[in-house]
Write a protein that binds this DNA or RNA. Structure first.
Lengths: 195, 195
DNA sequence: ACCCTGTCATGACACTTGTCATAGTAGAGC
DNA sequence: GCTCTACTATGACAAGTGTCATGACAGGGT
């Protein structure tokens, strides 16, 4: 996830997502977000009159769309896509970033669920929406490869669950081993869904 | 996870784990933990001179052992255990509790990783240790069923990752659908490892 | 009787957080 | 030039946090 050249508002949403990935929603202080976005603190209340909830919600929307674009890029750029190839592409990118950043950043959706799913219905709904956005290209990609619709939905869910879980394991162990194992073990199952 | 009749100290560790499951490590305030454990606030500094870090660490140890005992109970009480049966037993118990408590409580290990893996090495290590404790009976159970050691380790990792991830999905969606899908899709893969 | 140790109880602290209030500044439109 | 709007900037505040200091109280052991 490279840091793009964007408006102050977009930078704040972006940096909010990154802060959530590092220290969870509770650890993502608004002052820190403003500082890292090189934006004035006063702009927060101007752009996000809904307060922190709004910022977190938009950060989740951004994250969902970013993840979906990543999947679509695989489908667009790969000559002969396969279910296992699509999943492995995800795993590979996450593993690379975990190692680059020394396991500092996880998934913002998981962070928001763990921190606020119980206390904040709005953020919880935003997390669910981000997951749906992410899952959509996975599902349609599988269908394009010839997987039956019902099965495509199930496998997309499995991919997301396995990825989110491996990320937790990898960060705990400071080792991308779990990610690689899961990708390897799941590969035959995923490809067996092809016609 | 029933609330046992234990010493004030044990009650505090237990309630710390539950609070972490609900609102993450950041949301688990020490005052709240003391109140819910029906213990005086002063006892916290007495039993846990290491402060919140120590309490969280012990809560993770407790959680790891609780989860491991759950797996061992399946292996002990089931006449003809199978890999898919073992995984489904886990899923079933988690799904039941999610629904009972209306998705208020997730996995404490995931919570600690997401919240503090980046900032707190001690807690991160405790989370990794808890995962190892949990994984151990899964691995040895698979081996007892006849799965080759290397494969048993890989499948245990896969189970944990898939479970942790499904929990995130299920809490976000307030629906145990993802848990059931993952269990169903993984079943044939898991049982195919039998000799 | 004494003290000593484990536990309980309460108050205070420094700090951070999200939020609000207020005012300043730039720049376009006319 | 003037005004209106969008944005920037700074200060303050109440609430909540982890931590520490201090003291009270019980119950043995001697």
């Amino acid at each position: 996830m490279e840091k793009p050249q964007r408006s102050p508002r977009e930078r704040m949403v972006y940096e909010a997502a990154q802060a959530m990935r590092e220290d969870g929603v509770g650890g993502a202080a608004l002052r820190t977000v403003a500082t890292r976005a090189a934006a004035p603190r006063g702009s927060l209340q101007h752009y996000f009159p809904g307060g922190k909830d709004q910022l977190v919600t938009e950060a989740l929307e951004w994250s969902g769309e970013f993840a979906a674009a990543q999947v679509r890029a695989y489908l667009r750029d790969t000559r002969r896509p396969s279910p296992s190839g699509m999943f492995n592409d995800l795993v590979r990118q996450w593993a690379a970033e975990l190692e680059d950043r020394q396991f500092a950043r996880g998934c913002p959706v998981a962070a928001s669920v763990v921190d606020t799913a119980n206390a904040n219905p709005q953020v919880r709904a935003a997390a669910a929406a981000a997951l749906a956005t992410w899952q959509k290209p996975l599902r349609s990609g599988l269908r394009t490869m010839g997987v039956r619709p019902a099965r495509a939905a199930a496998l997309a869910t499995l991919m997301l669950a396995a990825l989110e879980g491996s990320l937790v394991l990898a960060r705990a162990e400071r080792d991308t081993h779990a990610l690689r194992v899961v990708s390897r073990e799941l590969a035959p199952l995923l490809d067996a869904a092809l016609p």
